[in-house]
Simulated assay, not measured.
Amino acid sequence: MSAFQINLNPLKEPLGFIKILEWFASIFTFATCGGFKGKTEILVSCPSKGVVNKTITAAFGYPFRLNQASFHSHSSGNVCNVTWENYVLIGDYSSSAQFYVTFAVFVFLYCMAALVLYVGYTSLYRESRKLPMIDFIVTLVATFLWLVSSSAWAKALTDIKLTTGQNIIKELTHCQQPSEVLCHFDSVTSMGSLNVSVIFGFLNMILWGGNAWFVYKETSLHSPSNTSASHSQGGIPPPSGI
């Protein structure tokens, strides 16, 4: 194995430069999704008991197991004699969210390893037949998985918005008895950062798909064989005429 020797020239080429972009994009992907925390709030009133517009809150966040996010009252005691802790949001979207974030973390680590190989072992990478091929296969698989994980997470995010929005009122039993308890949807935390995470997911797919061509050029599938090279360089003389 050749000795480690820093060579920054690959970073000036599309192969290395795009890898840096992929590294940064993966960071934004898992940071914007994995670091999210939000809450949905409703206003509860029961005029017969002298209670007006008391706030009931359900906090949620990554990994978005909404069926474990119970409601809590800001005031002491049970509002309108209802044990709101017994009510939870609907849905478990942890599988899509965790797959999305975990894959982004693995991509982050792979990009670091690839950059070390490009910069520190440039000659080893260029002279090897296996390393560029492995890099090419990983690039194709990563492109496909970015498409799958981003699509799944985008669908899950759509469902999360519906579940934590105004539709939650329809799922609360006591809110279906207006003569006793009046419920009004108040607010839900903005999910702009989650929208950004979806955008970065599809951006990653585009980056990895585009980078596949530059990685392919480093493989033996694109490089001419030694025999073809020797012919082009005049290594074997053409047959003489009769």
Rank of each mutant, 00 (worst) to 15 (best):
S220L: 08
I134Q: 14
S228Q: 13
L162N: 14
S187A: 12
W146D: 10
Q176E: 14
G209Q: 03
S150I: 12
G165T: 12
F144Q: 11
M133K: 05
S150R: 01
L207K: 02
D159W: 04
D159H: 06
G192S: 12
M191K: 00
T219Y: 06
S150H: 02
V148A: 09
L203Q: 02
K170H: 10
T163Q: 06
L207A: 00
G210F: 08
P239V: 13
P238C: 01
A229Y: 04
M205R: 02
L221S: 05
A229V: 08
G234P: 01
T219F: 13
H174K: 04
A154G: 09
Q177L: 11
L194T: 01
K170V: 14
F214P: 05
P239T: 07
S150L: 05
D135P: 04
G235K: 04
Q233W: 06
Q177P: 00
D186E: 05
S150Y: 10
H184W: 05
P238N: 01
P238G: 03
G192H: 08
L145G: 05
D135V: 06
S240A: 15
P224N: 14
S232Y: 07
S223G: 09
K161T: 11
I168H: 03
N226V: 15
D186W: 07
L147K: 01
F214H: 13
L207W: 02
P238H: 00
G165N: 05
L182Q: 03
N226E: 15
H184I: 10
I160Q: 07
V148S: 02
M191T: 12
R129A: 11
V148P: 00
L162H: 10
L145W: 11
D135R: 00
W213D: 09
G210C: 08
T219H: 03
S232T: 06
F200K: 03
K161W: 07
E180Q: 14
G234F: 02
Q166G: 09
K130G: 15
S228V: 12
T139D: 07
T227N: 14
L145V: 12
I160S: 04
F214Q: 05
S193F: 04
Q176V: 04
S228P: 00
L157M: 09
A229W: 09
V196I: 10
T158L: 13
H174D: 06
W146V: 15
H231C: 04
S223W: 06
A229S: 10
W208T: 09
N167D: 08
T219V: 04
S232W: 09
L194D: 10
S190T: 09
E171M: 09
W153R: 00
G201W: 09
